[in-house]
């Protein structure tokens, strides 16, 4: 069960602060930079990274600063892969040799690495099952592992409004079972079909992969 699936719940007012700085402390900058830089090591993929963040205990996930969530998750990912050990964290220096990594990002390579990003579209190997205008129902039971179908949109009927492309399937990629690319759709729901108190004029759209959907 994901600690990150917050849609439809209530955590009080938003309280935006228009004068908020980009970073609140130096450590936030370093966490952002380290997490982005560590992507070059090739030890985990995007979905494994998300899965690690949402696997934190819920009371912790909803109460600590966002870059602290990143810190906890990236440490967990590195411990799981033997890149760092608890002993090393305690002592503050290396105790075991590093594991081989794909690459150490250099400062000179930063512009190219950021520009390249990580596209997730993959060549199509099938035709999309659903066309724009089709009515679809989302799956009712969420898997216990990483998924990108929020609970509030489970077992609901919506309409396909776009076929985005053939994209990596997070549910598979997050558990190391391969990218298993499949069709990604935009699905629009009438707000009242998701929430009893939804406004009659409103809609909520989600981007959902073909395995989440079935004919109505």
């Amino acid at each position: 069960m994901s600690s990150a699936d917050l849609g439809g719940r209530d955590f009080g007012p938003v309280a935006p602060n228009p004068d908020e700085p980009m970073f609140h402390a130096e450590w936030e900058k370093r966490v952002l930079g380290m997490v982005v830089a560590l992507g070059a090591a090739g030890q985990w993929n995007l979905d494994q990274s998300r899965s690690a963040r949402e696997s934190l205990p819920e009371d912790q996930y909803v109460s600590i600063p966002y870059y602290h969530i990143w810190l906890e998750a990236v440490e967990a990912l590195m411990r799981d892969r033997g890149m760092i050990t608890d002993d090393e964290m305690d002592k503050g220096h290396a105790c075991v040799p590093p594991v081989p990594v794909a690459r150490t990002l250099s400062a000179a390579d930063v512009p190219a690495a950021l520009a390249k990003g990580g596209p997730v579209d993959r060549p199509a190997t099938s035709e999309p099952v659903f066309a724009v205008g089709a009515r679809v129902r989302t799956m009712a039971i969420l898997p216990g592992t990483h998924t990108r179908l929020p609970r509030y949109a489970a077992d609901k009927v919506g309409e396909i409004t776009a076929v985005h492309g053939h994209h990596v399937f997070p549910d598979s990629n997050a558990v190391g079972a391969g990218e298993a690319p499949t069709w990604l759709y935009k699905v629009a729901f009438v707000a009242r079909d998701l929430f009893a108190d939804g406004h009659p004029d409103d809609r909520v759209s989600l981007d959902l992969w073909e395995p989440y959907l079935s004919d109505v």
Partner: peptide, 28 residues
Amino acid sequence: EIEARVRALESLLTEKGYIDPAAVDAIV
């Protein structure tokens, strides 16, 4: 506490060759 923890982590990752602090600077 978190500032110290992050600094220690960056130092460890640098020592192990997983990151280059100059790349972290450039990203930020």
